[in-house]
Simulated scan of single mutants.
Amino acid sequence: MDLVHCRALGPYRGRLLSNPVDLSALAPIIDHAPSNPALFVQALTHGSTGQTPDYQRLEFLGDRVLGMVMADLLYARFPKAAEGQMSAFLNRLVSRESCADIARACNLGALIRLGKQARDDGGAGSTNILGDVVEALIGALYLDGGLASARSFIERHWAERISDIAEAPRHPKSELQEWAAARNRKTPTYTMLGKSGPDHDLRFTVRVEIKGLGAAEATGTSKQEAETHAARQFLAEHNT
């Protein structure tokens, strides 16, 4: 990081000199010149560093901004789509897994500030952390450059996903629900069996059951991902 950035960060200067963030490497990812670089350092700082502020508050804000912008983009892009279809598209596009895929495509993991243990445990590749950091960056862009800057980031990084979403296969949970209905059965039930692993890389185990037809279990990095895997597993085992 250059001296200008260090001066601009004010109270964060000492912390960054001992654990620097390369904002020049972030520049092509966000396509934005920060007026308040500290926001972007915060967006890349995980709680395991013990340094405050970390990215959690920005992640909270960015999650809401992403949802609002994505809803607007989908509303304009699919004028004939029903509410249910747009909701399904939205849930897929703003999921933690989708955000983490964006982070991986940008090699964002290399820029995240992690405590030694979290980094040794593979935190830089964690779906949870990568997804959170992308949302935190959206929050930082919103605060630093307004909605236009946040929207530009979202449009650029999600453009291909939005274009492909209508042709994408149905979500496994939706497909399983339709499968059950076609057999005159009630909606599948999902039960959380437990979670394991360190806080920054939790694993959730879920069981899905359709009464009288069977059940399946699966694990994922979030409850939603585990449910998706369980639905896919059920279909693989029972839809042959």
Rank of each mutant, 00 (worst) to 15 (best):
A166D: 15
L143P: 07
A8L: 15
A33P: 03
K223C: 03
I112R: 02
A230E: 04
H46N: 11
N128D: 10
A150V: 12
M86P: 07
D63W: 00
S174V: 08
R92W: 08
N19E: 08
S222T: 15
E225A: 05
K173Q: 11
L44M: 09
L176Q: 03
D22V: 02
L23P: 02
A148K: 02
G67Q: 14
A181I: 11
L137K: 01
I129V: 12
S163H: 07
A226H: 06
S87H: 07
P198Y: 01
K80P: 00
G14S: 10
A25Y: 01
R104I: 15
A168W: 13
G115W: 05
S24L: 03
L66F: 14
E175F: 00
R96Q: 15
A140D: 05
D121P: 07
V206Y: 09
R64Q: 10
G67T: 04
I138G: 04
E178A: 04
I29K: 00
R232A: 12
F60Y: 15
E155L: 12
E237K: 12
G146E: 08
E175I: 03
H171D: 15
K80I: 06
L9P: 03
H32C: 07
E227A: 15
K173E: 09
T228Q: 14
A168T: 14
E227G: 08
I165A: 11
T228N: 08
R113T: 05
T219H: 07
E237V: 08
L93V: 13
L90G: 04
V69Q: 07
T205A: 06
A8P: 03
R7A: 09
D120N: 09
G122D: 03
E178I: 00
G131Q: 06
H46S: 01
R151A: 15
G214T: 00
L66Q: 10
I30W: 03
A231V: 09
Q56K: 13
D121L: 13
Q42K: 02
D101N: 14
I165W: 13
I29S: 05
S152N: 08
A180N: 05
L23E: 03
E227W: 15
A159K: 09
P34A: 14
D63Y: 05
L74A: 06
K80F: 10
H5R: 12
F234E: 01
R203K: 09
W179L: 02
A103C: 05
G47A: 14
L235Q: 00
N184I: 02
L44K: 07
A216L: 00
P11Y: 15
A8G: 05
L74M: 10
T240W: 08
Y12V: 02
E227C: 14
I210V: 14
V4I: 06
W158L: 01
R119W: 11
V134I: 08
D164M: 06
S18N: 08
R13D: 14
F234A: 00
Y55M: 13
L39D: 04
Y142V: 10
A110V: 04
A71T: 11
P169H: 15
H171M: 11
R64L: 12
R156Q: 10
G115F: 11
C99A: 10
A110I: 03
D101Y: 12
D72T: 14
T187P: 04
G145S: 05
P53S: 06
G194L: 05
N184V: 01
A82C: 12
E97Y: 13
K80M: 10
G212E: 09
G197I: 13
R183E: 01
P11A: 12
